[in-house]
Design a protein around this nucleic acid. Structure first.
Lengths: 172, 172
DNA sequence: CGATTTTTTGAATCATATCAACGTACGTGG
DNA sequence: CCACGTACGTTGATATGATTCAAAAAATCG
């Protein structure tokens, strides 16, 4: 059997909430067209973006999915989006999965860890401007497509301050 | 065969550099006694701690290990430390590993992702004091054992500022 | 077109960094 | 066992990066 046997194509309109805080996450999905975001809301009510998932990216709440605990994050469509949807209880899946599926899974997880490590590194050692420059390099497409507001949230600053950075950068 | 078949026990004196920037990482190790740290040096020459590995924790440079690229981090012994050492080229290991080993590997990686996600979350939404309080909760043992300097580096602030936070916290 | 959302601007303020100085503890060699 | 040197921790003054708040300008959408 194939790892994506239980999969189907799904479609979400811009603004749709796909996963909510409190629900147990029972899926992973890969974006075919459009863009999703995952984020959480802090105690002050402020939204912080964890991940963007444009074409080709996977998104899910791993913690909720693997440990069967309520999610602490949200996933929304920020554009009209088409995805490859895998509804899956991980334990069931593992019983069925082949050795090759597992190796593949390991590679996906590793990629995810490496991306996460890079982000931690940026947050620990770079200024807001450096993080913005890095964002532009890493996601040139998204820089065009997304509202400044969301990019600010992703790199961990206020929209006002990102606006100021843009002016400064442009003036060079 | 067992995932830890190629393993042996090793001993490092406090201060030993186990992995250096530039080397390709060829091992993973689990701490039996003592404590290791992984860290990187930023452009300004400042050290940022990525992870502590006291008793029971795994440490490695996953990026270097999985992708066979030169490491961008260091790993040092911050106490006299005894470890379970697995010298391993991942690809070779996978050829030998059993299904159960792979499942186990997936679980380890997942735990790592979840820990990483938590850290990103803290860095994005919490103040230095909140991060310090969280550190105390999460690693009560380390709070006693480690110099303030290293804790400051881990939570992403200067030693001076952590000192100020401590004074404030104590005065409550 | 009006209504809502996004972006920009500026001023005041806050969290954290920097720098310099001093006090304290620790480890090693005499 | 003491003395010294080196690393570590604390303190205070000052500087800076980033936030907050309020309001205006610009863009987007029904």
């Amino acid at each position: 059997m194939d790892f994506f046997d239980i999969k189907k194509v799904k479609f979400f309109k811009k603004g749709t909430v796909i996963l909510q805080e409190g629900e147990v996450c029972k899926f992973g999905c890969k974006v075919i067209k459009g863009c999703l975001k995952s984020y959480f809301i802090d105690d002050a009510g402020k939204e912080h973006i964890i991940q963007f998932a444009p074409e080709g990216w996977l998104i899910s709440d791993m913690n909720s999915l693997f440990n069967k605990v309520p999610s602490t994050i949200y996933i929304d469509a920020i554009e009209d989006t088409e995805v490859l949807w895998v509804r899956t209880d991980m334990n069931d899946l593992w019983e069925l999965a082949s050795r090759e599926d597992l190796l593949d899974q390991i590679k996906t997880l590793t990629r995810n860890i490496i991306a996460g490590n890079k982000r931690t590194r940026m947050l620990l050692s770079s200024t807001a401007e450096e993080r913005y420059q890095d964002f532009i390099q890493t996601y040139p497409t998204l820089t065009q497509r997304l509202p400044l507001k969301l990019i600010a949230s992703y790199i961990g600053i206020t929209p006002e301050y990102l606006s100021e950075i843009r002016r400064k950068v442009a003036g060079k």
